[in-house]
Lab assay of single mutants.
Amino acid sequence: MFYPNSPQTSPQLTQIPYGQQYAMMQRQIQQPYHPFATTEPQARLYPYHYQGPIQQEQGGFITQQSTAASPQYVQMRVTPVDQSIMSGYPNQTANGSSSSSFNYNIHPQQQQQQQQQQQQLRHHAMPVGSVPLQDDRYRKQLIVNYLAPDVTSTDLHELFSRFGELDGARIIYDKQTNMSKGYGFVYFCHAEDAKEAVERMSGYEFHGKWLKVGYSTNPLNIVPSNSSPYVHAGSRGAAG
């Protein structure tokens, strides 16, 4: 039997160049792979992502010199942007860049009308829970959420009447099932009393439920100042 490094198959040491006398086997001759043993700084910083320098080929596509990437890492192929796409944008300079302001050559009167329309939209648009300043009635009506099913309009009136005089209180019921929808409205005579009720009743436990109280901004629920107070009856038909 002959071994790869046996004296019968191995040459004389004098015939082997210096430095390879003890590297006779194939696994010894093959050098191990060192990912950080390279002179390129990109490979030292990113050993798993770097795959060699990027070269520009004919046709405008950018390719990489090395083989496919590892399945664990996804390499994105980048193509140059066609400058003709950006030619339609206004205020574009000769080098292809555009300024931040756009001039669509709008007539001054049209621009003024658009600004007025935007101001009107901001004036009428009102986020949930906010209180408008032009109508004091919005500051007097509250919406009470997360009410228990057994709470009546009379219970709601008695709960909030300790903060001040009320114009009314009612629970909203479903017309088909005649069941409470879980929320109601309270109408105060003074805005200061309503503000105190919002601050003190939010998070209050009532009939096993934690109440959420806020201003009601729905104009359909506003009680006119010259109208008669609501009837605080315990029956659902009268309260709904």
Rank of each mutant, 00 (worst) to 15 (best):
L166D: 05
P32E: 07
G164Y: 01
H190W: 09
W210Y: 01
Q111N: 12
E199Q: 09
G214C: 10
Y146D: 00
N91T: 10
G164N: 02
A68W: 15
R162S: 13
L133G: 08
P90K: 12
E199I: 12
P219V: 01
T154G: 07
Q55Y: 15
Q42C: 09
D155G: 09
H190I: 04
I29G: 06
Q12G: 15
P7C: 09
H157Q: 08
N5T: 08
L142K: 01
I54C: 09
Q30R: 04
Q51T: 13
V231F: 11
P7K: 10
R77W: 15
F2H: 08
F102E: 02
L166A: 03
H124R: 08
Q30M: 02
S70M: 10
T217Y: 01
H232V: 05
Q119K: 03
P71V: 12
G214K: 01
S130M: 13
Q51W: 15
E165I: 11
S130Y: 14
Q118E: 11
C189D: 01
R27Q: 14
Q30Y: 13
S130E: 12
Q21T: 07
Q110V: 09
S97E: 12
Q111P: 08
Y183K: 00
P35S: 09
Q31R: 06
I54Q: 05
R44D: 03
Y215T: 00
V144M: 09
S180E: 01
F36Q: 03
L133N: 13
P224L: 03
S10D: 11
Q115R: 09
P53N: 11
L147W: 02
L166N: 05
N105K: 05
L220Y: 04
Y22S: 04
T217M: 02
P7D: 07
T14G: 06
S66H: 09
G88P: 09
Q8G: 05
R137S: 08
S10A: 13
P11V: 15
Y183S: 00
T67A: 07
I222G: 02
I62P: 05
P149N: 14
V151Y: 05
Y3V: 07
D150T: 08
P32L: 11
Q64G: 12
S6A: 09
Q114E: 06
T154K: 06
R236V: 02
E165Y: 15
Q55L: 14
Q58D: 12
Q92C: 12
G19H: 11
L121F: 13
S98L: 10
R170N: 01
V186D: 01
Y46W: 09
Q30V: 14
T217F: 02
K212Y: 00
G168H: 02
P149H: 09
R162L: 11
T14C: 15
Q55R: 09
N5M: 09
D174K: 01
A43E: 06
A191V: 05
R170I: 00
N5W: 15
P90C: 08
Y215A: 00
Y183H: 00
S235C: 05
P224Q: 07
S87E: 09
Q28Y: 13
N103E: 11
S10L: 10
P224G: 03
S235Q: 10
G168C: 09
K195D: 02
G203S: 02
N105P: 07
F61Q: 03
P41N: 02
I143L: 01
P11S: 06
H157F: 08
I143S: 00
Q55F: 15
M76C: 10
G19A: 10
G88I: 12
A69I: 11
F163S: 03
Q51R: 06
P32S: 05
Y48W: 12
A239F: 09
Q116R: 08
G214W: 02
A169W: 06
G234F: 04
Q15H: 13
V223P: 06
R77M: 15
Q26R: 06
L133A: 04
Q116F: 11
T39M: 15
T67Q: 12
G214I: 00
I222N: 04
V213K: 00
Q75R: 05
Q111S: 05
E192A: 03
R44H: 14
L211T: 00
D193S: 07
I143V: 00
F61D: 03
S202N: 08
F2D: 04
H107P: 09
E57K: 03
Q118V: 10
L147E: 07
F206D: 01
T38C: 15
E158H: 08
Q65G: 08
S84L: 14
Q51E: 13
S6Y: 15
Q28H: 12
S216R: 00
V78L: 10
P224W: 07
E40H: 06
H34E: 06
S6W: 13
W210L: 05
M179G: 07
D135W: 06
S235A: 10
N105A: 12
Y22D: 06
F188V: 04
E205A: 13
T93I: 10
P17E: 01
G164R: 00
Y50K: 02
A169I: 01
Q141I: 00
F160C: 02
I85A: 10
Y173A: 06
L166R: 07
E196D: 09
T177Q: 04
L159V: 04
G60Y: 15
V223H: 05
Y204S: 05
N178M: 13
E199P: 08
V231L: 11
M126I: 09
G164I: 00
K140I: 00
F206H: 02
L13C: 09
L45I: 09
Y48D: 05
P53Y: 14
G184S: 01
I222S: 02
P17N: 05
V74N: 02
Q56A: 10
V128A: 09
S70A: 08
Y73H: 05
T39Q: 04
A148Q: 04
F102D: 03
Y50P: 04
H190M: 02
T177G: 01
T152Y: 10
R170Y: 00
K209F: 01
V231Y: 12
Q113E: 08
G208F: 00
P224V: 04
P41G: 12
L147A: 03
Q116C: 12
A191D: 01
P32D: 03
I54L: 08
S202L: 06
T154F: 06
Y104I: 14
A69T: 12
I143P: 03
P229T: 08
Q15N: 03
F188Q: 01
Y89T: 09
M24F: 06
A68L: 10
M76A: 03
M201D: 00
P108M: 15
G203P: 01
Q134K: 07
N226G: 08
R77Y: 15
Y187I: 01
F102L: 07
R27H: 14
Y33W: 15
G214D: 02
G182T: 06
G168I: 09
P132N: 06
I222K: 04
G59V: 13
Y18W: 11
T9L: 13
T39S: 06
Q21S: 04
M25T: 03
P17L: 14
L45F: 14
Q134M: 10
G208H: 12
R139D: 03
F102K: 02
H157D: 06
A194Y: 07
K212P: 13
G240W: 14
E40Q: 12
Q12L: 07
A23M: 04
Q116M: 14
N105T: 08
Q8C: 09
P41K: 09
M126A: 05
R170A: 00
L156Q: 04
F206C: 02
F206Y: 09
L147Y: 04
Q115S: 12
M179N: 15
F61V: 04
D150Q: 04
A94H: 12
I171K: 01
Y18Q: 09
Q42K: 04
Q56P: 07
N95Y: 14
Y215G: 00
T152K: 05
A239H: 02
S84Q: 13
K140C: 02
Y146A: 00
N5F: 14
S161N: 08
Q28K: 02
F36V: 07
G237N: 04
W210N: 02
E196W: 08
R77Q: 14
G164A: 01
T38W: 09
K181W: 00
Y230L: 06
R170M: 00
Q134A: 04
S97R: 10
A23K: 02
P47Y: 15
